[in-house]
Amino acid sequence: MSGKPDMRVSLGGLELKNPVIAASGTFGYGREYSPFFDPARLGGLVVKGISLKPREGNPPPRIAETAGGMLNAIGLANLGVEAFIAEKLPWLARQDTAVVVNLYAESVDEFGELAGRLAGLDGVAALELNVSCPNVKAGGMAFGCDPGPVGQVTQAAVEAAGDTPVWVKLTPNVADPVPVALAAAQAGARAVCLINTLLGMAIDARTRKPVLANVFGGLSGPAIKPVGLRMVWQVRGTLAAQHPGVDLVGMGGIASGVDAAEYMLAGATAVQVGTASFSRPDACLMIAQELGQFCAEESVARVSDLTGGLNT
């Protein structure tokens, strides 16, 4: 094939340089990774979940490595929306990439308030609602498992966000992700992102104690990729039929360009990369480059041609 593949994608109201986005919770506020590569080389980045008030997070230990993955129970530690706007957003706004702010809230009203505070600010390209984080005892889980609350939360954020696109990041800890994805789409989400971490647990048999102070944590990493692929594929058909304008963002265990291609073939327009950044800090960049190589090798002229291209 002659020439380089076109890596641009249109996703949930945004035009991205390439389909690789750094996932929330693994990429800090973006700047932490700037010593390793220029974030302008990514399609986008999603900052750590931001709440109305600062959150200290869970007591340690907060992380544990497991076979092919890791558990985390950070507890959504963040500096709160006002400090985020004052201290982190000015730097983010100068970066030539799509900055998505992930929102964590404990009520429908709080989601609306947060979305209203952030939408339209310079540097905020889109909002991603975390309705799925399993780490906080009261919160995310309750919204994300049930189509009704997911719809309410999405609607509140969409109404408050005006022209700023709202994405909804869903939990895999449900029997069927389709009704929840449809509820988000119905309520005005421009993209549905899945999957967040799977609820898990690690035990130290010698001490007979749970490894994490929080006991439960979210499982991420290569171990969960088959679950993520299944859920993207599962949601894709119904979503495309009923809400063709709503895009899917695939994530869960992506560690290579080929992994990213798999998610796109399953139906994702773009992907997010999380835990791979802990294996090496420039993983997102490497994955974007590898995806380009994959397209070149497979004679794919536009990376967006991969989306939904699974042969069954």
């Binding site: 990429f27 800090g28 932490e32 997070g57 340690p60 992380i63 950070i74 530690a77 802990f278 800090p281």
Partner: peptide, 23 residues
């Protein structure tokens, strides 16, 4: 020491309690 993930200050996995609160 603490179990650590990112090593670059991003993930907040490796915290220890701070005097005066927080981590």
């Amino acid at each position: 020491e603490a179990p650590m993930a990112c090593g670059v200050g991003a993930c907040q996995g490796c915290v220890q309690p701070a005097a005066g609160g927080g981590y």
